[in-house]
Amino acid sequence: MAEQYTYAVSRIRAMEPELLSRAELEQLLAAPDAVQAMQQLADKGFGGGEVFATLEELLEAERDRMWETLYELVPEDEVFTVFRYETDFHNLKAAVKAAVTDMDAQGLYRDNGTVPAEQIAQAVQKREYDALPEHLRQTAQQAVDVLLQTRSGQECDVVIDRAALEQMNEVGQSSDVELVRDYMEWSVALADIKIAVRGCRTGKPAAFLRRAMAPCRTLDTVQLAAAAAKNMDAVYAYLTYTKYAAAADALKESMSAFEKWADNQIMALVRAQKTNPFTIAPVLAFMLAKENERKTVRMILTGKQNGIAEDAIRERLRDAYV
């Protein structure tokens, strides 16, 4: 029932003015250094209003704050599960590397997955894959085997990243919410295009690329991988015949121009929910807008920390939701 989320959507609308506007991002850009920029964010209530020592701590606190609100609004809602898978797979990646290479992954784990990070870490450490939820079981085993055999972190990442995309797309496509279906389709297609471009630039063979790419409705991964194994012109030529034709233009400019274009496409998809007063979609849109906001804050603050010029950072800024 669409009206089921009336309270949630209304509360989200009252929270939307807290999202950083373009003018506030400009103020952040004008801050003399990263420390003062972080102080500005704290003054605006970002990260709960506390001042954090590092950027990562600040972003993590803001992420936790968002999930806390979402749990309060729509407790145990299946719609969010698909977005929490990303955290599960991220934690799995850290757990596999920690288990095989004895790396200390304690600081890498994230909260807000569908299962606690600790559970994933222990299951992988002891190779007790049955203790893992179904969507991670097979991938965990496969990733550990690949890492043990090849000792290549990249090969291990390929296995986990593809499984994550595949799993999220599969669950996402069965959702009743159009925004979830569209978002997942775009996410997978854009990830595949990124794999194709990076693979093409580093000279990866078509077989490797096919293994790395997750299938989706709007792209033929076999053709895209074959094109990427040839050269960038073949990738552009293939993309021209898909709905991602504009991606080719952005790619010709630079990889960061493509990433900006990709994020803006997602934001355009999400922004349509600004005028929707009912259903769960505006709540999801808010969640994705917050993700975009964190990405933008990270971009500005990392730029500030590394002394990058204001104009250079501004060029890379994505469209804001508000």
Partner: peptide, 13 residues
Amino acid sequence: MAGEAAAGVVTED
């Protein structure tokens, strides 16, 4: 229905 929406807004403000 309008009461639910109003409660949502008043929670925040």
